[in-house]
Nucleic acid binder design. Structure first.
Length: 430
RNA sequence: GCGGAAGUACCCAAGUGGUGAAGGGGCUCCCCUGCUAAGGGAGUAGGUCGGGAAACCGGUGCGAGGGUUCAAAUCCCUCCUUCCGCGCCA
């Protein structure tokens, strides 16, 4: 969400930015919102004048009543009553226009960083850097569900019975591996100076409205029946929600937080649920990082964040690459975004395991997350978020990259303390 | 979940329909005194929106949102939060 004052004074920059994102259909919105804003401001000015008059006159009534001059009071009362209708109409118009302006402002995309590559859609995203050699063993890598089943580590059939498609039972060493990865990720981030949080896994509708659009809510969020509560789709929802309408002291910054939560997603729409496997599912668990910082530091933190994920995957011997989102694939709220992708030796390609985003001040403007300087002046914070790891999905990369020819799975050194010292998950004897 | 009480500024707190939302503490600045404590004065209602070149002016604002009224901190409705008691429960 842009500052309407910025849009007012720099309509050309805003339009140029819309073109760069290949959203030509939104171009007319700029002039539309400028006109609307002008109208809304003059309506407000007029309304303010009327309200000031009413206030003054109402006070006169009070004075006259106190002195017992009832007739004079009644006369002024009639005057104020006469203003009432005009004011009510004007106030309705003011609210309506304000809502309309906000609605438009929410769909006008944030100004992208100059470094963002220009491109129409995800096919034009740009590979930035590879970390580790994509490795292909001389034996065939099975589908990840088959690897897990051979290790007695997953039961999708029963999960479909109890909960439906998109759920899973993990069991035995695979379940333990899942928890180990999360525990390791938690400690990994704590060691890098992040503060560990376990947030609420349900949030109120008021917070939902703040952190996402209506369309997102419809496609993602599960509602609790009979309660004003929704299951979170990511811990970012409750972690950013924590800062809604707050003023932070500048010396508290940067806030560098890492949060664990289960995530629940309906996955309605474009992609839907994968038929098999744990790639795209209704319920998964995730370790996340969140940063709230000064505007001049957000690009520095952006680099710190994605590097954390890369380092994390490298300690588990998984080759990764970074892929920068091109302008057309970048969500409207984001200034810059970069996906971390893990190597799949089975598919011979990289696939997304995390997404690092710098939202600039757009999220902060929408949610009123502000920072107070020592001199009392205030500004909007910058917010960033990134995935550390989402184990069910990352298990795919983990298993494929650490699989031995006999079907057993190597445990990289970093993870062994979390696996009770195990260095390999062996295939159970029938 | 049930019953009771409450929510006003950095903190405490008065205000139950009417002209600028008292007072105290704390904090900041100034004055007096002069060796360490006290006295006097001033400032301290945020946030946000709008107008203005600026000084400044106006709207809004008493947990949130609605309503009644010429006028709401005050009356009515819904919700949230906190405290106390009871109940239930990892």
């Amino acid at each position: 969400m842009l500052d309407i004052k910025f849009l007012r004074t720099n309509p050309d920059i805003v339009k140029e930015n819309i073109r760069k994102k290949f959203q030509e259909e939104k171009l007319p919105l700029v002039d539309q919102v400028i006109a609307l804003d002008k109208e809304a401001r003059s309506a407000k000015l007029h309304g303010d004048e009327l309200r000031a008059q009413r206030k003054a006159k109402s006070k006169q009534i009070g004075g006259l009543m106190a002195k017992g001059q009832k007739e004079e009071a009644e006369a002024i009362k009639a005057e104020v009553n006469a203003m009432g209708e005009e004011l009510a109409a004007l106030e309705a118009k003011e609210t309506e226009m304000q809502q309309e302006i906000r609605k438009i402002m929410l769909v006008i995309p944030n100004i992208i960083d100059p470094s963002v590559p220009i491109g129409k859609d995800d096919s034009e995203n740009v590979e930035i850097e590879k970390f580790g050699e994509p490795f292909t063993p001389d034996f065939e890598i099975p589908y990840h569900v088959d690897i897990m089943e051979k290790l007695n580590g997953i039961d999708l059939d029963t999960a479909r019975k109890t909960s439906g498609n998109g759920f899973y039972y993990l069991c035995g060493d695979i379940a333990r591996l899942h928890s180990a990865i999360l525990s390791y990720a938690r400690d990994f981030m704590i060691n890098r100076g992040f503060t560990y949080y376990i947030p609420p896994f349900m949030i109120r509708s008021q917070v939902v409205d703040g952190v996402m659009s209506f369309a997102e809510m419809e496609n993602m969020m599960y509602k609790i029946e009979g309660e004003d509560l929704y299951l979170i789709g990511t811990s970012e929802h409750s972690m950013i929600g924590k800062f809604i309408d707050t003023i932070l002291d500048e010396e508290e910054l940067p806030k560098t937080l890492t949060s664990y939560s289960p995530c629940f997603r309906k996955e309605v729409g474009a992609h839907g649920i994968e038929e098999r496997g744990v790639y795209r599912i209704h319920q998964f668990e995730k370790q996340e990082m969140i940063v709230v910082c000064k505007p001049e530091e957000s690009m520095k933190w952006f680099d710190v964040l994605w590097k954390n994920s890369v380092d994390f995957f490298r300690t588990l011997d998984i080759p990764v690459r970074t892929l920068e989102c091109c302008s057309g694939d970048l969500a409207d709220l984001k200034v810059k975004s970069l996906d971390v992708e893990a190597w799949s030796p089975r598919q011979q390609k990289y696939f997304e395991v995390g997404s690092c985003s710098n939202l600039g001040d757009a999220q902060a403007r929408r949610l009123m997350i502000r920072v107070k300087k020592a001199d009392g002046s205030k500004y909007l914070a910058h917010t960033l978020n990134n995935t550390v790891v989402a184990p069910p999905r990352m298990l795919i990369a983990f298993l494929e990259n650490n699989l031995n020819a006999d079907g057993s799975v190597r445990i990289p050194e970093a993870l062994r303390p979390y696996m009770g010292g195990m260095d390999v998950i062996s295939v159970p004897q029938k």
